[in-house]
Design a protein around this nucleic acid. Sequence first.
DNA 1: GACACATGTAAGCTCAGACTGACACATGAA
DNA 2: TTCATGTGTCAGTCTGAGCTTACATGTGTC
Lengths: 117, 117
Amino acid sequence: MNSEELLALLAAVGHAQRLRIVAELSEGRMYVSELARRLGMSRPLLYMHLERLEKAGLVASNLELSPDGKALKYIELAPFELRLNVDTILAAVREDTARSSDPGDAAGPAERNDGTT
Amino acid sequence: MNSEELLALLAAVGHAQRLRIVAELSEGRMYVSELARRLGMSRPLLYMHLERLEKAGLVASNLELSPDGKALKYIELAPFELRLNVDTILAAVREDTARSSDPGDAAGPAERNDGTT
DNA sequence: GACACATGTAAGCTCAGACTGACACATGAA
DNA sequence: TTCATGTGTCAGTCTGAGCTTACATGTGTC
């Protein structure tokens, strides 16, 4: 995970409304309007937050049809786990600099696959 | 940890420059001007970021005198560890709502879907 | 005194993110 | 046909974080 991905994740979670969204969704999947009602927030705003959460991979959406025939967009929480400490950050930043400014690693073949730190 | 503290921590870390600051400081303590030089960022800007990091408890500062007699403000990384997942977020949000809207735990534990893993 | 190097802060600009209000469109029920 | 309830998106406003430039102040050295 490079710093860009790490930042996307942190930015996605790092907002009061989005914390509430995640907390609300922890009770189970629900569709957008229902979620907006529960949280007391406008749909356009909720859409924006959901978009961020979805881009970061924290939620998944699925469009379904209710028995009434109405289209309902169900939002579901995706499991995630990030251990946030100095090592995680250091690894992310190192991954950037290795790619952008110092691609030729002096010692040995530059296998980007190994990772495993 | 309530959501405010959680957000402060996430916001503190959730910025590219601050990730770089943390990464740089992982090599050891150093004073502000030196750090600014290494990161290629202006001191006022670095001050702002350091202030955020310090408020979140991620770094600590200490004003010292060099052998020359110059005042040097040394910045040191504070150890931290946060497991970021649904449970952490849920706990933080619950702590808020419990304090603000539902101080008295009414009618028993009311654990809907604890699933304590 | 002039210079280099350090801390510390204030004023002001810019811009992305957060948010609101209003639209278009579809469906089932009255 | 009208209403209620969905989805989906756009235009526009506004606030605050991020950033720069510029200061004031202190020290040791030339």
